[in-house]
Design a protein around this nucleic acid. Structure first.
Lengths: 347, 347
DNA sequence: TCATGATTCGTGAACGTTCACGTGAACGAT
DNA sequence: ATCGTTCACGTGAACGTTCACGAATCATGA
């Protein structure tokens, strides 16, 4: 083993701060120049095989790893995407994350993931961090355009589940209109008129799903008002259970319920059964997500399935467009991902 | 709006490559020096408030964002963690990811997430990428120590769910021995003797849970052989269903089944009920994970719950130790995270 | 008038890598 | 002997930022 030159102790510091081993250290040990080391580790040509091996050996004994910062500074490639997920423990968002990860990986992009835990404060922090550490951001963001602009100034930004009309940034929406239309066609076709909804957004916040739910209610002229929409405070089974309790208390004659998402719908089923109601005979329950979890509960959940892979793909493509093209293409008429009704037993 | 100095076109290239706007551009526009710009954007002192505002205004009009590479090069802080998850759409791993994300965030670390999709090839790719882009790696890795050393040379590495005896790298294990002991105490206490297992690893691979299952079988002297362990090819409900079919075909007199994880156990329940068996009366089913999903199925799943947050915390702490301390502290006698038996209805 | 200090700002020099060049040696052809 | 070519390798310069230092300005006091 070659002797280590221990010339790192310049100042009389008791324990000299461990300096990073650089390409020059390797060069010195191998008896060559920086450039030759670079050639060796990057598989460039113009190098003698023997020298290459000697250099690589030197990198090993020194435990050398090139600085990603210095490397990133020269080569301008290397794209890092920031992903803000509102709750990774929700299987739906996990699926979205998987989709984004997969599509980004195809392009050789790295993805830094942040979980905002449904907290707008955390979301802002995530935006702050990612606007420094990433080249673009994709996310389920609750903040207003102003907030986003303030905390991620000048960043390419693609919002998930927002229509192009709801933000001036890039966006990939869910076609809630088409989804609700399918839901109501199915439910009214089965004879339902008194249909309620368990929403996932607070009452004072806009909610595309609630909006289109009410639009369908109007379209079918159902005997149902805005108070048939109960807002759940979280996107969880527990919140769905509580919401369903509230809905049944207010409108015991409801015969069908549309959940904001599958988790809430599962909660609705549980509450219904706990209160002695049969699903779907006494009350039908319809979810919105398409989680595989829906197949496991009793009864299996009928749901508007969202193609998360498609969602992720579209989002990454938009980012790519914003990154390359100078101008943001204003969402080419696409209303977003179209849900598909998956019929199971619950409705 | 101040006029843009368009001096970027040096060579007569038709459309001059869009150069990055640097701190010098901002300095020029604001009529100050680099250093003053740096002071303004980093909230350092020694700057006139008026100048600061002028500089910040300039950054806005130019859409300037500091290069994370140049920044990372100077300030030596900024730690990026690589996280390799074998299947993010499995709620268990999603929870682990959430835990790591959360603990890493507390330290101000960024996390690049890779999903290896249970593919060792993908896992190696992830290692390759992360060894360049991260400062340390945490992961559920299937590869051998040799493979890991080859694809992440010199990297601080912490393996999840491996005992310190199973790898020379850092590791945070699950105390499968303690878990299985609890499981068998419960099952034998309920009178079970013919206990089977649905394993999650291939037969030819070591599996800590299988090992300790068999150890318990021996300890209680049960009339059960190694062929009472059926290996499932995936960690999914479907695989559990198939595995349970195989187990019931081979040993119709089995009265209790331990699943490798909750998903497989849920599959076991479904197969059992499909075949007309009552759970837990005819066959008891016990999971291993502690997913919240377990509360939703029929009957609710009894399971050995793993504290994923603890797992993530320990892993990050080990990384921190490896990053600061020169030597890897050889897993201070800790056997890892100890599962806790959560009694529900299925066993 | 000069020293003193505080405030505000600018000037090289680094951080570690890669790119565009340049150089010397070896070799063959003329 | 001269030239051109190829091969293997080395030398500044650049990437964009921050740090350590120094300098200019102004006010204050003796």
């Amino acid at each position: 083993m070659p002797g280590k030159h221990d010339e790192r102790q310049k100042l009389g510091s008791p324990r000299a701060a461990k300096r990073r081993t650089t390409i020059d250290d390797v060069a010195k040990l191998a008896g060559v120049s920086r450039q030759t080391v670079s050639r060796a580790i990057n598989d460039k040509g113009e190098i003698d095989p023997a020298t290459k091996e000697r250099v690589l050996q030197a990198t090993r004994t020194l435990g050398y790893r090139p600085s990603r910062f210095a490397q990133g500074m020269r080569r301008q490639d290397s794209v890092t995407l920031g992903l803000i997920i509102s709750d990774l423990s929700n299987p739906y968002f996990a699926e979205v994350a998987v989709a984004v990860l997969e599509v980004a990986e195809e392009r050789g992009w790295h993805v830094i993931v942040c979980d905002s835990r449904n907290d707008e404060g955390k979301e802002r922090e995530a935006l702050d961090v990612l606007s420094r550490q990433a080249d673009a951001i994709i996310g389920h963001c609750a903040g207003s355009d102003d907030v986003l602009a303030r905390h991620a100034p000048g960043m390419p930004l693609v919002l998930l589940e927002r229509g192009p009309d709801q933000t001036r940034f890039g966006s990939v929406g869910i076609d809630a209109a088409a989804g609700m239309a399918q839901a109501f066609a199915h439910l009214t076709g089965a004879g339902h008129h008194r249909i309620g909804m368990l929403d996932g957004a607070p009452d004072d916040r806009p909610s595309a799903r609630r909006e289109h739910f009410l639009a369908q209610v109007g379209m079918y002229d159902l005997p149902v008002g805005a108070d048939w929409v109960v807002s759940c405070d979280r996107h969880s089974v527990g919140a769905g259970e509580r919401g369903m309790d509230a809905l049944l208390d207010a409108h015991p004659d409801v015969t069908a319920v549309v959940g904001f998402n599958d988790l809430i719908a599962v909660g609705a089923i549980r509450t219904a059964r706990r209160r002695g109601l049969r699903v779907p005979d006494d009350v039908a329950v319809l979810g919105f997500d398409g989680l595989s979890l829906g197949e496991l509960v009793e009864p299996p959940l009928t749901t508007l399935s969202i193609d998360k892979r498609e969602l992720g793909r579209l989002a990454v493509e938009q980012v790519a467009a914003q990154l390359s093209g100078d101008e943001k293409p204003p969402a080419e008429g696409d209303a977003g991902v179209r849900p598909e009704l998956v019929l199971r037993a619950s409705a």
